[in-house]
Design a binder for these strands. Structure first.
Lengths: 141, 141
DNA sequence: GCCTGTCAATCAGTGAAGCTGACGATTTAT
DNA sequence: ATAAATCGTCAGCTTCACTGATTGACAGGC
């Protein structure tokens, strides 16, 4: 299990590394692209990242010009972290395809049917537990 | 995937934590129990642990009286790290059962058939790749 | 018997990564 | 208006593994 995850992480990491990104960056970019501008807290808590770590993640993305900090007019304590047009373009046309490639690479030993099966099993393994919340939206593969 | 692994690690970690152990300790203890006394290098390289990290792992296990350092008579540079009788007893009668429980807990969402299926898929995912070596012995679940 | 090279274990120091706790700025509640 | 809570930030701490160097032990050439 841990070995599989190590491979997974390493494959994804080297997929985004050419763009100067880490996998956390990809998660954040994707979250903004699909859910719209969000505060750092939202981005952090939704994806299990620490709030203080989020600062440096956004710092990096902003430095790369992929993201911009705007104040949320409804609550000026919060930012509204949004993608720049370059950020959106890079994410959609370059990074996302690279990630799909990487995922394909990771699942290389499997046939299409097996991929779906594995995905379903993994999903159940994570979300189908009695104790805590089993309601969550789509995230990592 | 990463979420599943996080759960896995956390469940295993809290399974051995009551004994004052970390998962690395369990790996090492099991390795010695099944393969016999070994040098620290062997233990380290076999399981992807750094050699210098191994020092402190064995330190801890020795401090708990579960393991003892003896010199390898054939090569006195090396240790022959062996289980004490307490170590072996604790591992076999307490820790290993706790780990099985934890694994059972982890796989709770699955039926017996699904467990076997998932295990097989995971195994293939890790070892059935064209590039590097696909020969390895049994390790983590 | 030595001299050189290699390997096992150890240790100090380094560096990455995340987290805690505190702070200013702002919002919300009483 | 005052108090409590929230967002982003930063300094400092902890954890963890790794690098490089040191000591003791083996192996081979001569």
């Amino acid at each position: 299990m841990s070995k599989a995850n190590d491979m997974f992480v390493q494959i994804l990491e080297s997929a985004v590394e050419p763009f100067g990104l880490r996998s956390k960056d990809f998660i954040v970019l994707t979250a903004i692209d699909t859910m719209g501008p969000q505060s750092q807290q939202q981005l952090a808590s939704t994806h299990g990242i620490d709030r203080t770590t989020m600062v440096s993640v956004v710092d990096g993305l902003e430095r790369l010009g992929l993201v911009q900090r705007a104040r949320n007019p409804d609550d000026r304590r919060k930012y509204a972290i949004g993608l720049t047009s370059e950020g959106q373009a890079l994410l959609r046309h370059k990074v996302a395809p690279a990630m799909l490639d990487a995922l394909d690479n990771f699942l290389a030993p499997f046939s299409p049917d097996e991929r779906e099966l594995f995905n379903k099993l993994l999903w159940r393994l994570v979300y189908e537990r009695d104790s805590p919340g089993e309601d969550e939206a789509g995230e990592r593969a």
